[in-house]
Design a protein around this nucleic acid. Structure first.
Lengths: 256, 256
DNA sequence: GTCAAGAAGATTGTTGACAATATTACAAAA
DNA sequence: TTTTGTAATATTGTCAACAATCTTCTTGAC
């Protein structure tokens, strides 16, 4: 709980941890950005439960700053969709209904399609292939295991990061990062059965092939299908176990 | 310049003007939101030139509030991509390079495709058709005139708003609104020749037909093509007249 | 005349206090 | 026991002042 090293060294050694893929960030992160990054970490890892309210005072006290920077940090998190701010009612961790999760996956499907099509049509795409193939190979190994391990999930995320960061379209990178962050915890749900994992690996292999061949249309098709399959699997899990993604649910209050 | 009615009545009569399509806004707009809406208006109408710096003090004085709410307003505008905030250097009106304009149009193409495909596949879509057809008819009339009139441009925007607001996907609506706002001034560029306008009308007619027929694939195809054509025309204009979209350019300073 | 260094001014970043509003706890009545 | 009104508390919204940093202007040397 003692996280008040922030004031000591603002551009400290752990800055890299916090840099959650914000496009072209300045070298020195501002105080609100640092606070936002820390809170962001807690939200996506589930330390804060969906629906939970975040009090400015508590956060300010913990980081040993005044409420001003905390307020701005919350606005940054709102931009990323991680918290929802209501006037006179403060910020609370965004709680996505299964309908909203579906909406986000729908958007991710077409945007991932755009990203991968443009990547496949990029003359300079060969630079990426080795890293891409290495990750997919790892994925294929992990997929043989009967249980869903953390390594598998991590590799899938790494693949997505790799592709998104390679996109030449800055705004696309930002939107995709934001949407990926919002659905992070739900994405795992889509990989829970061995069958889904085998299918996922096949999709990735096809995608790498399409990129290697410079076949933009194929890359787009595969990318879209992959996200849509992931969407359906996640939604199925979500509706089977309504409280699925989060540790606690709903009325959780008072984190201080 | 006397815009300080803000403090008098927060939910006043002009609230509708300010409500620039923010998804499911609470009935009472907060002070930062009101300030952001006013500034947003000025930015998209060109009252503030791209690249121009916005001083917190000046805005605060004009609206008769302290710098706190102004700061939050600027963060809101940053979220919408209308201003760019640099640490210790404040906010300035976002100045899009032609490459960035192209990037945004690329994203709009696939997202408009998604929007219109889902609309065409919506069982309840018939409710929309009359309004849609009326607007397209207006468009066809205006397109016969040799000059690009304000009425034509307005109708195109109205059509887009109509479709976006009809989408059932809230997050898609928000992203599309934001992107449309950012490229508002550039969109006009894509309609400057009579030939382009005739082509545009044809696209809209095809789109309405696809929606009426419930042909999602066709709707998606037409929507994408329409945006891409608009993109190419806008980029051509932009590179022909580099200072094209904005009244003034570049180093403009000191608005107070 | 051009460039560099330093000082003066302007602007953003942060803070703590106060005001306005929302939430909770409690008591009284149905 | 449940509901409703009211008081107490907690929380957000706003402000004005101060600190840190950046910009601009002036001065001087080459």
């Amino acid at each position: 709980m003692v996280n008040s090293r922030i004031r000591a060294d603002r551009a400290g050694a752990t800055a890299a941890e916090w840099a959650v893929a914000r496009g072209a960030a300045p070298l020195t992160q501002s105080l609100p950005e640092q606070i936002a990054a820390q809170l962001s970490e807690r939200i996506v890892t589930g330390a804060y439960a969906p629906g939970q309210r975040i009090m400015e005072q508590a956060v300010a006290a913990e980081f040993a700053v005044s409420r001003g920077p905390v307020r701005e940090a919350l606005r940054l998190l709102e931009r990323d969709g991680l918290v929802t701010i209501l006037p006179r009612r403060g910020a609370q961790i965004t709680n996505l209904s299964s309908a909203e999760v579906k909406e986000i996956f729908d958007i991710r499907a077409v945007l991932n399609g755009l990203r991968d099509r443009q990547l496949a049509e990029d003359p300079d795409r060969l630079r990426l292939l080795p890293a891409l193939e290495a990750e997919v190979a790892k994925l294929a190994r992990f997929a043989r295991q009967p249980e869903l391990g953390e390594a598998y999930v991590e590799t899938v995320f790494a693949l997505n990061r790799l592709l998104t960061q390679a996109s030449r379209n800055r705004r696309l990178r930002m939107i995709l990062d934001s949407l990926a962050l919002q659905t992070l915890r739900y994405s795992k749900l889509g990989l829970s059965t061995p069958q889904r994992r085998r299918q996922s690996v096949q999709h990735w292999q096809k995608l790498v092939k399409a990129i290697r061949d410079g076949d933009g249309a194929a890359a787009e098709r595969v990318a879209q299908q992959r996200v849509l399959d992931s969407r359906d699997a996640a939604i199925r899990q979500l509706e089977a176990h309504p409280a699925g993604a989060s540790a606690q649910e709903g009325k959780a209050r008072r984190a201080a």
